[in-house]
């Protein structure tokens, strides 16, 4: 897998100062991922709705934002996409782990490895996109507060913190605090599961 063909690669590119390339690769990836995730949710047989609708409309707006050229910034310290994808990847790893543990009678784990790299290729796989969509739905659900949910979605749409502060007419400090809270809730949820 070439250097630029993974999230790790982009992040490395970013560190190496190749910000433009990394951002472009991310945008390309992001757009495809969102389209795929959206198709996945839209294609689900009807079921208990609510959160699906919210997720679907959110993914819709991500698509629109991307088409309008507004992408989340990879270099953003508060970026929620990185959290979302990390959580999804971790979940996928869990699945792999369970599977291999079963196969080998619950024996040892495979050696370490940059799982993230192997799971997230430059081409988002349909199954990963599906996982992202599912994870996204779950995470939105678990925020439990409309304001947090709204901030999360704006953030995921690529709005900057000051822009979000303007939208909710609150201070930047508050937006940052809320983003931190969102992050913590998401991470706490994932920790609970494990």
């Amino acid at each position: 897998m070439s250097k630029a063909s993974s999230i790790t690669g982009w992040l490395e590119g970013l560190r190496a100062g190749d910000e433009v390339t990394a951002q472009r690769l991310w945008e390309e990836y992001f757009h495809r991922l969102v389209l795929m995730a959206r198709a996945r949710i839209a294609g689900r047989p009807t079921g208990p709705k609510g959160s699906d609708d919210v997720a679907l409309s959110a993914l819709d707006s991500f698509c629109r934002a991307a088409e309008a050229g507004r992408f989340p910034k990879l270099s953003d310290r508060d970026d929620l996409w990185q959290v979302l994808m990390m959580l999804t990847a971790r979940k996928a790893i869990d699945a792999v782990r369970r599977e291999s543990a079963l196969q080998r009678g619950g024996g040892q784990l495979v050696r370490e490895g940059p799982f993230f790299e192997t799971i997230v290729g430059i081409e988002p796989t349909p199954s990963f996109a599906a996982e992202v969509a599912e994870q996204f739905r779950l995470l939105l659900d678990r925020l439990g507060d409309d304001e947090l949910r709204q901030i999360a979605m704006w953030k995921l749409e690529g709005f900057t913190n000051p822009e979000i502060a303007g939208k909710i007419d609150k201070s930047l400090a508050t937006v940052e605090r809320k983003l931190q809270l969102i992050r913590r809730k998401w991470e706490a949820d994932s920790a609970d599961r494990e």
Binding site: K170, S171, A173, T174, R177, K178, L181, R184, K185, A188
Partner: peptide, 16 residues
Amino acid sequence: SLTAAERHDRICDRFE
């Protein structure tokens, strides 16, 4: 803890 963070968040909201 997460609960404390939420509590602080609410206090800050009131403050704002």
